[in-house]
Amino acid sequence: MQKAERLLDLAALLLRASEPVSWREIQEQFPEDYGGSGEAAIRKFERDKAELLELGVPVRWVGGDEDLSAGYLVDKEDFYLPDLKLPPEDLALLYLAGSAALAQRAFPYARDLAHAMNKLSFAARAPGASEVAAVASLQLSADDADPGSRAESSARLEALSTAVAGKKRVHLVYAGAERQARTERDVEPYGLYQRGGAWFVAGFCMLRQDIRSFHLGRIVSLTVNPAAPRTPDFEPRKGFSLAELATRESWEFGVHAPVRCRVRLDGPASPEERDSFGPRATWKESDGRAVAEVMATNQEAFLRHVLSLGDRAEILAPRPLRERARKVLASLARRVS
């Protein structure tokens, strides 16, 4: 019997049974598959059971007692997707979140996400317009250009998603931005994060012996350790926080000792502008103008951020950085005139 068929038959048998099904009975029902005696048959059954578990079919073994015989069962309560019991606005948010993520084309576990979106119509009490909106958003985004590189980056993201979930080491050929040179290294991938529309994998780099982030777009090639796919290769370091790493501002990467920087904006800052200086910036108002203060460990990155705000913003301190801003702008002004 084909594997897919066997798994589905097995699921149907266990779902329909009102009592645990004994191993002997399972062997009788699937004589070709589990009929053999001894270890091999049990191992095959255990593998199938694990696959069913991964598909969301929770098969478990229950020991017998006076009232119940020992055997395998699928707890119906634990199998069928329940109603999420969320208010309509939360459900709408969920549809919107899922469809916006899918519309990006590259998202970790994108295939799982698409399955989840399908299942949502069963888990929501009021399917309808929100679901329609989700589907529409996908179709609206479907004809986005550049399919080649997108397919490539989503394939990479999928491979890395699998590696992160299985805690499998990956081998990367990586083109660094600053050095231009290609390097090869083994990385223990701890997690995936998105920033400014690009995805990064964060993890322990065996080459640098430290936590590093890698831009997916600069990964030249990627191999997931194929040995023992179900056995983890590593445990992430204690205290590692992906969210902390992912929300680090570009000027918070450690290049030099912390320097207090101040910026003045014209008028009150918009929510987007405030947000762009990150959660650790402190704000003051003076003469109807907003002044932000940050601690930078990479002043050059901070300068770039301030320049991107054009004439809306001006560096007040420290002096040398202010001088550097003037120089950069003066040199650009010479080039444009």
């Binding site: 991964e54 598909l55 969301g56 079919v57 929770p58 634990d78 199998f79 069928y80 997707l81 329940p82 948010l93 969920l94 979140a97 899922g98 916006a100 993520a101 998202f107 970790p108 576990y109 994108a110 799982d112 996400l113 399955h115 989840a116 979106m117 399908n118 299942k119 069963f122 998603s161 979930a165």
Partner: peptide, 18 residues
């Protein structure tokens, strides 16, 4: 009659998006 529950990766992807 109903689909199975979310797998951990289905739910995690959706939760991360949310």
């Amino acid at each position: 009659s109903r689909p199975p529950r979310f797998t951990e990766s289905e739910a995690a992807a959706l939760a991360a998006a949310a």
